[in-house]
Write a protein that binds this DNA or RNA. Structure first.
Lengths: 227, 227
DNA sequence: CCTGTAAAGGTCATTCTGACCTGAACGTCA
DNA sequence: TGACGTTCAGGTCAGAATGACCTTTACAGG
């Protein structure tokens, strides 16, 4: 029994990358379509669902195959199924969103992959502009109540680095003292005891993410590991 | 190009129904499966996706066909795609959750449909217990920050009725005075000017939902009306 | 007309939040 | 070598939000 519907999996990938002036910018890698429909347009990385994998596994694999990246955070965003969203027939896309670390982001070499500032996107293929807008909304909303900002950073980081992640994503400055108080109250990070030396000012503490603090709502908890 | 994956649409439907003692209970209608796989087990209402409809339209139609109900609130919950979730082959289910009014809930007559208390479900078909648990978590979480409780009620209601909805869903008592303050501050409801007469006590005001207060996150906003 | 109960509106202590201040600890430069 | 600029780390303080609780109002029923 076939329904005549193609099932695809795509991912909105976020990373913080330096722009021409060296300032970190919230960025998204896009893939140039090399065949119809919408040939030549930029689109989200993705592809057809695979019958042998879970949807999250497919998202992670496609993400790695097309961009060479691996995600520090991966969560299902939404399932898009408007009948008119693709001119070539009915396509239902299960869309994930992912966060990757800054160092990872520089490993992309494929000439058909390019990074764009999240708030300066061109006209994308299909309904992908709508999808990115929704993913951006989710990222910004979730950053305010869930400990996910560390996924942009390495295993250890200073509170100033973590605060900078929040400031770039939320597009507003945050009071350093109040940010410290809020983060410490959340118990999401723990000090390693080490400090960053060699800086021009008082050496800041290094922190790491406390994995014992479970994430709020990364989808339903299944018995198997990867969702 | 077929992926060998069946795409289904199911819905977790919530309503408040009186139990044997007349107390309102958060309840879910389930459908008894009349064919393999899992014949005889109770399952969520749903069916195969239709290539001509949006996913939300399919959810609303299946909801009406199998239970006779119409939803006052409908939102996509999650897309479930574990390879092992159905013994008969790969099925990906786009699951919605819906709220229906109490009066609506009494119109169900199909002998293969039965209501169950949300926290006393039997062993369901497939992974539907997991799905209902997740839907319950979403309903309870969302009730605390979004104005959706009115969807269980008629067009007008008293604050005591609205508070009772919150108390039943959240399974704890709420202070009437603080609840009033919180609801009034949210601007989600407006007094109609009318009062309920004939009661034993001081006549309460009637309120109606203020539709000008937009919902937070009922999925991405598309240009077309129904999602 | 008195009583019980819920509606409506209020107070008060506690907690949370944003704005701001002070001392500590560097590197840098005169 | 010592003053200076900057950031780190830890604090204060006022206003907003929250939970517990109190008072008055307004009805039905005995």
């Amino acid at each position: 029994m076939s329904t005549g519907i193609d099932l695809a999996v795509s991912t909105v990938i976020f990373a913080l990358r330096p722009d021409a002036d060296g300032r970190l910018v919230l960025s998204i890698p896009l893939v140039r379509r090399t065949r119809a429909p919408q040939e030549g347009h930029w689109a989200l990385p993705g592809g057809s669902a695979d019958a042998r994998e879970s949807l999250a596994e497919t998202a992670a694999r496609k993400l790695a195959e097309t961009t060479g990246l691996s995600a520090a955070y991966l969560e299902q965003l939404y399932c898009f199924g408007d009948p008119e969203r693709s001119p070539s027939g009915r396509v239902v896309s299960v869309v994930y969103w992912a966060l990757v670390r800054g160092e990872e982001a520089e490993l992309v070499t494929d000439e058909n992959v390019a990074w764009f500032a999240a708030d300066e996107l061109p006209r994308l293929a299909f309904d992908h502009n709508l999808i990115v807008d929704y993913a951006l909304w989710r990222l910004r909303t979730k950053l305010e109540y869930a400990a996910i900002a560390h996924a942009f950073l390495g295993p250890t980081f200073t509170l100033a680095e973590l605060r900078q992640v929040h400031e770039i994503v939320l597009q507003r400055e945050l009071d350093p003292a109040n940010f410290r108080r809020q983060i410490e109250a959340s118990r999401a990070v723990v000090p390693t005891g080490e400090h960053v030396t060699g800086g021009r000012h008082r050496p800041p503490r290094l922190y790491r993410y406390d994995a014992s603090v479970e994430l709020v709502d990364n989808g339903p908890l299944t018995s198997a590991g990867v969702r």
